[in-house]
């Protein structure tokens, strides 16, 4: 950065108070529009939760109201009253968490390899990881079906976990590169001078430093595994005890007579854990994703 900038920075610090005053009307306008946009973006979510609480018949009313006078828990009762709903929830959690943990570990190793080493085929590999994300998942269902059958995994949660790990890996590696790169090399050298072994550096120094980045990338693996119904629909053929939440949601999608209340209640139940997860990691997510550009 040029000295010019430094001078400007000093000037800025001197007049900060004035500037704030001048800018106020603009900022007010920006804040109002931010709030309005937030409301618009949140409206579909609000409508989802609202529809879940509306009593039967009110959803399909020709006078849609953005409120309900008689909130009812009937839709939620239908959702929770489903066979083994708790089981589905648990299954979804098992699938999503296994995918998150395993793919984070594998991606961490791979990202370390492609950022902290120079070797032949490095660029080729990077492009391959990118290409891997382009594979249309839907089209792969058939070959994967046979593969899971040959592994004897059909009808088990394993048939959901394995493909999801594979599909979330390329993106995770691609995103994690920035975080691994952000760790100063001096740190690595210092560690070796102190006599740390390779694996000690990897797991006790690098890993904790990259952890915020892992959290940020995990969000993606978590959502894709949690929300998936394509694999669940195709691979869990007949064993309902291995079903996941999206399958429980699909039950309400009868094309002849869709149970909108049930769909919306089930969706609310499905969205809340992700939202909670999001809110918990929000700070990390932002600082984490920011880390990706700090060069």
């Amino acid at each position: 950065m040029s000295g010019n900038v430094v001078q400007r920075v000093q000037r800025v610090q001197g007049v900060r108070g004035v500037r704030r005053f001048v800018r106020r009307p603009w900022r007010l306008a920006a804040e109002v529009s931010a709030l309005v946009i937030a409301a618009v973006v949140a409206f579909p979510l609000y409508w989802m939760v609202l529809s879940a609480f509306k009593p039967a018949g009110e959803i399909e009313s020709s006078e849609p109201r953005p409120w309900t006078l008689e909130p009812s828990l009937d839709s939620f009762r239908r959702v929770f009253g489903q066979q083994e709903f708790g089981r589905y929830f648990l299954n979804s959690l098992v699938v999503a968490c296994s995918v998150v943990v395993v793919s984070a570990l594998i991606a961490f190793l791979a990202a370390t390899a492609v950022t902290r080493f120079r070797f032949r085929f490095r660029t080729t590999l990077l492009i391959m990881f990118l290409v891997a994300q382009m594979v249309p998942v839907e089209a792969l269902t058939i070959p994967l079906f046979f593969q899971m059958r040959d592994f004897g995994l059909l009808n088990t949660l394993g048939s959901l976990i394995l493909p999801h790990i594979a599909f979330s890996l390329p993106f995770a590696i691609w995103m994690l590169r920035g975080f691994v790169k952000a760790v100063p090399e001096a740190l690595e050298e210092a560690a070796y001078i102190d006599g740390a072994s390779r694996s000690r550096f990897l797991w006790q120094i690098l890993f904790p430093l990259v952890f915020p980045g892992l959290v940020a990338t995990s969000v993606f693996s978590f959502i894709s595994a949690w929300n998936d119904f394509l694999f669940a629909k195709s691979f869990i053929i007949s064993d309902t005890s291995q079903s996941t939440l999206p399958m429980a949601l699909l039950v309400f999608y009868k094309p002849d007579d869709p149970d909108w209340g049930g769909v919306m209640a089930a969706s609310t139940v499905m969205t809340i854990p992700v939202l909670v997860f999001f809110v918990l990691v929000q700070r990390r997510l932002v600082s984490g994703l920011g880390g990706a550009v700090k060069d």
Binding site: A38, V41, A42, P44, I223, N227, P246, S267, M270
Partner: peptide
């Protein structure tokens, strides 16, 4: 609001 939209299952 944005995180909420992000978290919502596509279906």
């Amino acid at each position: 609001a944005a995180l909420g939209a992000w978290a919502t299952p596509a279906v």
